[in-house]
């Protein structure tokens, strides 16, 4: 009888260990997004999904890399000590959410201006308003350290955002593994 009890106890312990292992592999109610594109339309879509996901009760993590990195620059901040390539990238790439262009029908900036006008008319939040809203809602932003390094961006020239950190690919993968949804925009 005591022998049977001991066997049962062992089985329960084994099952509990297995269950814990399974639970660890179940992803959180989280959305991880790579924002790669520096286009206005794509960035807007990314932030609409991000804020919508918070409304749906999800945690949201956005990783900004490559062409999306300059979206988070603050046009009011100036950085002096850049090398030649850094200065070149700094000048050629958009300085913040307000100077990002449409992926289609930009028409030398005319199309983008028209779209922004239309958005205002139709009460659609602008990209910088969406970024502010995401911050308010607790969306975590990570910026790719490699992109910062490559394009010569400095942390001091990035916008004030409640939850912004800098990271590498491992951090993204850790979050992605623990997320129900992963998107690449």
């Amino acid at each position: 009888m005591t022998h049977e009890l001991a066997t049962l106890e062992k089985q329960v312990a084994d099952l509990r260990a297995k269950l814990e292992g399974i639970e660890r592999r179940v992803p959180s109610n989280k959305l991880s997004m790579v924002v790669f594109s520096g286009d206005l339309d794509r960035a807007l879509a990314a932030f609409i999904i991000a804020t919508g996901a918070v409304a749906m009760g999800m945690d949201v993590v956005m990783f900004f890399t490559f062409w999306a990195t300059p979206i988070l620059r603050d046009p009011a901040k100036k950085v002096e000590d850049k090398d030649f390539m850094g200065k070149m990238f700094g000048t050629m790439l958009p300085k913040g959410a307000c100077s990002v262009k449409l992926s289609k029908m930009n028409m030398g900036g005319l199309g983008t201006a028209m779209m922004k006008n239309l958005m205002k008319q139709k009460n659609v939040a602008s990209l910088d308003q969406m970024i502010a809203l995401a911050g308010e809602l607790g969306v975590q932003i990570y910026v790719c350290e490699l992109s910062m390094e490559l394009m010569g961006f400095k942390r001091e020239e990035m916008i004030q955002y409640p939850a912004m950190d800098f990271c590498g690919v491992a951090k993204f993968l850790e979050e992605a593994m623990d997320s129900r949804i992963q998107l690449f925009i």
Binding site: I48, T51, V54, A55, M56, G57, N123, V124, L133
Partner: peptide, 13 residues
């Protein structure tokens, strides 16, 4: 009224 996606759901949440 007048607010487009994603605002209605964001505000209601």
């Amino acid at each position: 009224k007048g607010l487009p996606c994603p605002m209605p759901v964001v505000k209601v949440s």
